[in-house]
Amino acid sequence: MHPKARARVTSAAIWAICLAPLLWLILRFREDGLGANPIEEFTHWGGTSTLILLLLTLTVTPLRRWGGWNLVRYRRRLGLAAFFYGLTHFMTYVALDQFFAFEYVLEDIAERPYITVGFAAFVLLIPLAVTSTRGWIRRLGRRWQRLHRIVYLAAGLGVLHYLWKVKADTLWPMVAAVVLAVLLAARLKPKRARRRKARVRR
């Protein structure tokens, strides 16, 4: 395939991934209007979508390193999609679930560990979304990369949020934890490469 055509197909596929949760939501809504407790269903949808998009954002680097597939130019799109689902998730909780009862929201954030870590994960994503523009990347230079390592922490807190939320069935939170662990481990430099570098330096 012509490189340009190939780029177009890849771009479309990334858009499809970013919008897939919306499609799922529409289909689910047509099925039974989100069921007996639509607010709960919508909240869960937002959280799940955020976590999936966040984990997909984190697959870009391992794909490049181990799969030789460079999708770095689409990483921002995936990351911003994760952020917007996260924003939806948070706003659903504040507006629909708690109906702006801020005293309860603050109590939840302060006293319910699963909400504390979920809220922290969301807050940590805000500076990353803000500094995702080309201008900010240029302005921050090397510090940009260091700043954006926060995403590991945000993803970890997101998985913890999910794990602490479920009542008994930890299967899916555990799957998310394993996926995140694999994605983070895939970033570690292999021992041999590190040694070689050390030797060169010597």
Partner: peptide, 9 residues
């Protein structure tokens, strides 16, 4: 321990 029981939906 993980959520309030003061209100319900």
């Amino acid at each position: 321990p993980r959520w309030s029981q003061a209100r319900e939906r």
